[in-house]
Design a binder for these strands. Structure first.
Lengths: 119, 119
DNA sequence: ACGATATTTCGATAACTATTGAAATATCGA
DNA sequence: TCGATATTTCAATAGTTATCGAAATATCGT
């Protein structure tokens, strides 16, 4: 990943509210639901209102959260999908994977030893 | 890592100039030098002037880069050490490791399948 | 101490961003 | 279609941030 894209993604995560949303969606994403035929699938993400409830504590949806979700969506970190009246949110796994790989590569690039043993 | 710290680190990386500096320092960090006794050790990082040269293309140091380095340093992503007239920069491996682990955990939290195979 | 080199700090400014409330849009059930 | 619920868009504002040039600080060699 080049610096421009890294900056774009990190800028989206560089706000406390958005970082909370991101980590919350990662948690939700781990939950598993069962299909009608009994097959396991990733659970649907939380609705915007549920995210709002988790972040702000108040059940009423806020324009502020909508703004932050838009930032995350436009950065490619989050996808949203309308389900009737509600809109469910999910982590974009592909983007997250690229981000994780970028930092893993940066880390291995720096070598295995966190302490300078010589000199 | 909690959302507050994630946001702090990502905010520091959420600027194109700083992202470039970060990736450049990761590269430099991979280089290895030899001690007087022949033991391998991580090479000294580049000086502020060298970073500036790589980022801006011009050899003259800029107050702007100094500002961005300060942001990275205060976020804990970069360390600086004076070597006479020069100041050498390095990635803070411990912070990078925590960041890499956070995204790796977020990713594994989301499960192994990037595609929804069911439904 | 002095001059040269390297880097940081300071002050000003323009651009950007988060927040808020009100209005608009979308979907559903009756 | 109407009312209710869920979400987004819009406009205004206050706070933050990147950039620039000039001045200040630090270190070295002479």
């Amino acid at each position: 990943m080049d610096a421009t894209e890294l900056a774009r993604l990190c800028k989206a995560l560089g706000d406390p509210t958005r970082a909370r949303v991101f980590l919350f969606l990662c948690q939700c994403c781990a939950q598993v639901a069962l299909d009608d035929d009994g097959g396991a699938r990733p659970a649907d993400g939380p609705t915007v209102g549920e995210v709002c409830c988790h972040i702000t504590g108040s059940p009423q949806p806020s324009s502020n959260l909508s703004f932050h979700l838009k930032e995350l969506r436009e950065a490619g970190l989050v996808t949203t999908e309308r389900r009737g009246q509600r809109v469910v949110c999910r982590i974009d796994r592909a983007t997250l994977a690229r981000l994780a790989e970028t930092f893993a590569a940066a880390q291995s690039c720096c070598g295995p030893d966190p302490e300078r043993t010589n000199r």
